[in-house]
Amino acid sequence: MLELQNISFHADDKDILKNINLKIDDKFVAITGPNGSGKSTLLKVIMGIIKPTEGRVLFDGQDITDLEVYERANLGISFAFQQPVRFKGLKVKDLLSIAAGEGVDVSKDCKYLSAVGLCAKDYLNREINDTLSGGEMKRIEIAMAAARGGKLSLFDEPEAGIDLWSFQSLIKVFENLRRVTNGNIMIISHQERILEIADKIIYLKDGVVDRFDESAKIMSELNMGRYGCGCAYSQKEGACNG
């Protein structure tokens, strides 16, 4: 489904991604690793927000390296930002209808919003400006990705800043995406419970794919403390020694 060939990204004299090679056919892949290891950069390369300095990106066999963000979106790739973007004047319903690629459909919008624990009545007409809280923004961001429901949904730390609502509901959103749209999901997370339900985990470190394997295998290594700071282990123990 997705293939990354020799992907490198340099900026500011730094090698942020170093020769990444990955072939991903799994339905649900989690990306984890320390802060600053290049996870967000990698997802942005897949979405086309960042152009890699070197390497190619293949999607369903098609070379999409030179495609623009919206062209990739129209091939069925979506992206939920780590820090959702705010707009003055545009409302939740505006973005949901752009996301769904159709006019406003209140019953559908209602479904997407209630899946992330928001009541459509209270939110559809809210402006996506700085009056929405951080957690509300994250939830709306996830609802938009669900509304797009494409072949490949990319999520950058969707659970960050979201209260305990919600964990189960959040996971339901992913399961739904998987089942209903038969789409693939790649998700950056530091959360053990998300890593556990993934089919595979990519462990990124210093811009390099340190590990890419079955979730269960990597989880047991993580739990044995092989990896430090910023990963599931340190979160679980509440200690950082890495």
Partner: peptide, 9 residues
């Protein structure tokens, strides 16, 4: 960029 990820040029 956000709107481009939703399919708009």
């Amino acid at each position: 960029i956000k709107l481009m990820t939703l399919g708009l040029n």
